[in-house]
Write a protein that binds this DNA or RNA. Structure first.
Lengths: 409, 409
DNA sequence: GCAAGATAATAAAAATTTTTATAATCTATT
DNA sequence: AATAGATTATAAAAATTTTTATTATCTTGC
């Protein structure tokens, strides 16, 4: 499987380089298509059928590709199908959220091959790297995954992250900011770290409601407002990987103080924080509401999900809160729509569960703040992917990196 | 020069296709580099030197490439240099502004080979196509340009434009909206139409202050606020080509009525319109100002340029207007910076001439409305390209299209 | 001014890839 | 069921490309 030739002293000819490039492309094609016939692959690869078959046989001999048997035909000889072995490639995907992390091992068919393990940590935890390493090892040994078949580790986390150099500038201890380097040293594998909002978006773009689009906006709507932007099918990271700071665009002139230190950020009027503040105000003002009578003795126990549920049951107070928050989000989205003219906007995350209670105020805001010709061509969708969009997105991202950077010599 | 083989009946082999692809790449490389040696070209093309030389000789025999003689060496035999013949390729570039158009013929070295002709027309002129055709012919015949060496026509104009299908939705007469088709019929050449802001941006990105960057924002600042967005080196057009509607993002709650029908758009507080309104108000309020005393008898003669000039001469009233407008623009830019994290923002157009009078209020706004970590990494530059960025950008765009789509069989 | 090292061009040999032809296998139609 | 048409696989021939070797030409340093 793994050739032991010392490539440092081996002169690599340009035709050999080209072969390697083509093989990587084949692996990528097989991963995205699941399985494919040699004639199809040769067309996609823009090479002749015989060379394509030679390349495939090479890959089969290296153990990277498997013959999947005979496929269907629309008239004519049935083709041999080729694909990646399910047990050939794995990556570790880790979603590091505000107060806990989840980690899982994923195969090349986006399948979780272990349970999702929870880790009690956060980005400023001094033992973060050790805890992740321990959890990963627990998964590896507990499920008999051959370590050499794990090709990389991907981690998404909140913060201002430059994924090119693996630094999270939001980590308080400067010595720990280069978390990419630390993880690489500990795991001795390809390591990529990315911003959580972008990885949620990656998941939605490849497996969720934004699948098939080229210009898509994905919002992960929770305590913050995570934004992922896809343009021409490419994730937009910006110069330093700081793109997508949707939470802190200024919306309200001299508005409420935000955790970022500025005033009137979108986050102050369109996030879970806003909902909680309005609930507290409601309790103080003794508003009439089933939610409030239910929680008035322990107001700190209310969650945004409770508000959504009460709205569904017809609670006017909760409906009006969601209405308010949706209106604000709609105004924020109108900026993005006018600047980017996306095909689709996908709302994901806990708050997107409010569905029509949040969709219709958003749409009203769009009607108010966008030029009709632009907004009418943008679809607004609630995600149906579920909570693991970040784990899925992160694993997809590492696979893409691994398949372009792996050593096939 | 032009082979007359009927390609409709000629079976094209895949190796021939590949050769054509490589030849097109060579032409593009030669155009962007001016001239180059065969060894360099072979490296860029990822092919061996002998094949590269064969391809070059083919192109020379077709008349598309010229031997430029012998170049410099850093030790070793001097290389032959190859390049495009200056008189080999031309395009027509037309910049259709609000009340007049300019048109010029450009060679493959971005050189204007004719004077810039002005045409008295606008997008809703029913004789637009005829006037453009006439003007183009005047240039062609007046300067002895062989018509068959003109490979395309590019036109930029204001409006909501889908360049893929060549439609400008802002043209009032629906029958005339498909201006791309109409021009193609009349000129019988490759025709591309694009939005003016994006073509100003294209000029800046390839020849102006945004040259060399990958994530750039270019503002054409005049009566409207034209925005061009480059991400990963690619122009962002959006689903329908409506991306970049910066003028009409909502900034002021219940603000002034905008020409678009909405209230409080950025255009109402940060464009030349704003300056003119403030001048009118100043005249009504009898503000103390050299500009006002100069123009109080014919206030309709004031131009934004006059305001900028007066500011330069120390006129406090004019300085305060520019300050106000700059502050507003800064707020608008803060949205883009936080969403896109660009490397550079280039300000072009008439209002950018106000230089420091507009830069420092913008910077102050950025400091106020952006997260420091994001805004500190964005450069803010005033363009030095001059007025013909759109003609340059448009010609560059057609050349790119022509060189990828031309028939080299 | 000459030798040593460097770069470029070219020719011939070697390797690789594409074509073409043929065989194998299948669907659909009669 | 037989046949025609279609698709895939493979083998051999033809074409193309890359390598390698050689020659030409130039810069630099002594």
């Amino acid at each position: 499987m793994h050739q032991e030739t010392n490539i440092l002293f081996k002169k690599v000819s340009s035709s050999e380089m080209n072969k390697v490039r083509q093989k990587k492309q084949l692996l990528s094609l097989l991963r995205t298509h699941g399985s494919a016939s040699a004639p199809d692959l040769s067309k996609w690869l823009k090479t002749s059928l015989p060379t394509c078959i030679v390349l495939l046989n090479d890959l089969i001999n290296s153990g990277y590709v498997k013959n999947f048997g005979i496929g269907e035909s629309s008239g004519g000889r049935k083709p041999n199908l080729y694909g990646l072995p399910e047990d050939g490639f794995y990556v570790i995907s880790c979603d590091l959220a505000r107060f806990s992390a989840t980690i899982v091992i994923v195969d090349c068919y986006h399948k979780f091959v272990t349970p999702v393990l929870e880790i009690d940590t956060h980005i400023d935890d001094p033992h973060l790297v050790d805890k992740m390493y321990e959890a990963a090892n627990q998964l590896i040994t507990g499920h008999n995954i051959p370590n050499e078949k794990i090709f990389g580790l991907g981690v998404d986390m909140p913060g201002l992250i430059n994924s090119k150099i693996g630094i999270n500038y939001t980590i308080k201890d400067k010595k720990r900011q280069n978390i990419g380097r630390d993880l690489r040293q500990r795991f001795n594998k390809h390591v990529y770290i990315e911003n959580d909002a972008r990885m949620h978006a990656f998941g939605e773009f490849y497996f969720g409601s934004a699948k098939g689009y080229k210009d898509a906006i994905i919002i992960h709507w929770s305590w913050g407002l995570g934004l992922g932007i896809f343009i021409n099918g490419q994730l937009c990271s910006g110069k330093n990987g700081f793109a997508g700071e949707f939470s802190h665009i200024p919306i309200v002139e001299n508005g409420e103080l935000c955790i970022c230190g500025k005033r009137g950020c979108l986050e102050t009027i369109a996030s879970s924080n806003t909902i909680m503040r309005r609930v507290r105000e409601g309790i103080a003002d003794k508003e009439i509401s089933s939610l409030i009578s239910q929680f008035q003795d322990h107001p700190d126990k209310v969650t945004p999900e409770d508000v959504i549920n009460s709205a569904r049951l017809g609670d006017e107070f909760c409906i009006s809160i969601l209405n308010e928050v949706g209106t604000a989000m709609g105004k924020g989205l109108s900026y993005i729509i006018q600047l980017m003219n996306p095909e689709v906007i996908v709302l994901s995350g806990p708050l997107s569960k409010a569905k029509q209670y949040i969709l219709s105020p958003i749409q009203q805001s769009l009607n108010r703040f966008c030029l009709e010709k632009i907004s009418e061509s943008t679809q607004l969708i609630i995600s149906d992917l579920g909570d693991q969009s970040a784990l899925l997105g992160t694993s997809e991202m590492i696979f893409q990196k691994v398949f372009t950077e792996m050593n096939l010599l």
